[in-house]
């Protein structure tokens, strides 16, 4: 690989642009490829295969060739409601797992930049905050305030927009009450049951990093079921 190619890769990575590295394993030539464009030179005859790697979000050698394709796909968006202590640990875990976190919390004293450096923190109520974030069925929601005023509107938004993962912190009792409120708001049983509550897989831990670990483990497992 040429130093110039390496520098271009680093630039694309830091600007979070989706791309692929194409390598000819026989002669060592490598190229950067942007999805939707035509691959250059010796790689041009593999346009369809390269695009398929992108679609399947996979890396590998193109069949019956010596061309290696490595794709860089945008991270999965995870929205956390509640800039609480657990959120700080979630941010740490998410960094090495290709999740992109945004935090919503209308309480200014929680949602400070000093507590969450380099993270998008939106100091607004969920309804207004969601106007600033692009979401779809590949988005995840983690509700951590266990305050119905803040969590409920976010959960309703996530259900309506069919987020692939929705989790809410709180005891069994808190969650039962939450389910009841959602039912009264007109959500079906299937929708309500799709919420992971109490959030996280059972690890037994009670400290903030342990709870964050149990949440992130559940999120990863649901991401692979997607």
């Amino acid at each position: 690989m040429k130093i110039k190619t390496l520098e271009e890769i680093l630039k694309k990575k830091s600007s979070k642009t989706e791309f692929a590295i194409l390598t000819n394993l026989e002669n060592g030539d490598s190229e950067i490829y942007l999805p939707g464009t035509s691959p250059k030179g010796e790689f041009s005859k593999y346009a369809v295969e390269i695009e398929n790697f992108f679609k399947s979000k996979k890396n590998g050698v193109i069949e019956n060739s010596e061309i290696f394709v490595e794709t860089y796909i945008k991270p999965i968006k995870v929205i956390i409601v509640g800039a609480v202590h657990i959120a700080q640990y979630l941010v740490d875990f998410a960094k090495s797992l290709n999740f992109e976190i945004s935090i919503i919390d209308p309480r200014g004293y929680f949602a400070s930049e000093q507590r969450f450096p380099d993270i998008k923190v939106i100091n607004k109520w969920p309804k207004e905050a969601f106007e600033e974030i692009e979401t779809n069925s590949s988005t995840a929601l983690i509700a951590l305030t266990h305050d119905p005023k803040i969590d409920d509107p976010a959960l309703q938004y996530a259900l309506k927009n069919k987020f692939y993962y929705i989790g809410a912190l709180g005891s069994k009792k808190t969650h039962e009450n939450r389910c009841q409120r959602l039912a009264e708001a007109g959500f079906t049983n299937d929708e309500i049951n799709s919420i992971h509550g109490p959030i996280g897989i059972k690890l037994g831990g009670k400290s903030a990093p342990e709870i964050a670990l149990s949440i992130i483990a559940q999120l990863v497992s649901q991401t692979y079921k997607k």
Binding site: L10, K13, K16, N59, I73, P75, K95, S96, N98, V220
Partner: peptide, 26 residues
């Protein structure tokens, strides 16, 4: 998981090259 934009190995490769080291990528 898929390639992460946060993965740091290639950044480290660049640092090593800057420090005049010969670098092989595996």
């Amino acid at each position: 998981m898929k390639n992460s934009f946060d993965e740091k190995i290639l950044d480290e490769a660049k640092d090593w090259i800057k420090a005049n080291q010969k670098v092989v990528l595996a």
